[in-house]
Nucleic acid binder design. Structure first.
Lengths: 142, 142
DNA sequence: CTTCGTGCAAAAAATTTGCATCCGT
DNA sequence: ACGGATGCAAATTTTTTGCACGAAG
């Protein structure tokens, strides 16, 4: 997913290309393969486009998430982090607790999982595997 | 992990058994097998012990987490959720996005994972499998 | 020239902290 | 009595929202 591709998605969605939006995208592109939080995106965006507002950042992160351009999650800190989706096939991550750098795990444990992990050069300290959905009761009275 | 067991852990840690703490524990015990957020714990605790403060709840959730009595995580909403650890062996969860009810998955995908899932009566809508640790660079200048 | 986007300011939500007092052990 | 625990109030942190103005298509 490169800049042109992303800008196309925005246009298709009826969104305009403002300098702020471009700056946010630049920042995300620069941080491919790494989760960053809203605060960091804000700081870096503001360095590119002076005066960009925090609300603008949050609003755009929302839009980008809805368009499937970025992925939002929350790791251990509790605050939300974002990264560009640059690898369409479904996958998971190894996440550095210190810098947020991620490595892709190309496969999903739901199908097979062994250890595509060994060669990753990460010191593992923990992991999370959670399934989301609706329990029987909640499926009923949806 | 029952009440007596938990109270023992608290004593061993040098913590006192205050009525507020007991109330919080009662609430958590009542919600075994379900993630609840701080707000809900606060409301329910305050129903048991009138006047309990929100700070008290947060402070105790911290303590309980550090003692390994509860498990804190953040699911999709972004706000932290907690549940009693009542099943010591390492495991993961299926989480209802609506009510927070959880089901245990007794095994960890890191070792083997097939589908201990089929019989769970959950409508799956998504899942998260994330490994945490330190990348090579961050391990170095730790 | 219309619609969407932005900045600003303020509010809301989630969590943390300092401090004086209180209470379990 | 001692040391941890609580309530309160206030501060922080993270995120959201209303509104008037400005700019992209």
């Amino acid at each position: 997913m490169d800049r042109k591709h992303i800008e196309g998605k925005l246009r298709d969605g009826g969104y305009k290309l403002t300098p702020q939006r471009r700056a946010i995208l630049e920042v995300l592109l620069e941080h491919r393969g790494r989760f960053v939080d809203a605060g960091e995106i804000y700081e870096k965006t503001r360095a590119r486009h002076y005066g960009t507002n925090f609300s603008t950042v949050y609003r755009n992160l929302d839009i980008l998430e809805n368009l499937g351009i970025i992925h939002k999650t929350s790791i251990e800190s509790g605050t939300a982090v974002y990264e560009l989706i640059f690898h369409r096939p479904h996958h998971h991550h190894i996440i550095c607790k210190k810098c947020g750098r991620t490595e892709i795990i190309d496969m999903c444990p739901l199908e097979q999982l062994i250890k595509a992990v060994e060669d990753k050069d990460f010191t593992l300290t923990g992991h999370k595997f959670e399934l989301y959905g609706y329990c029987r009761d909640c499926s009923k009275n949806q």
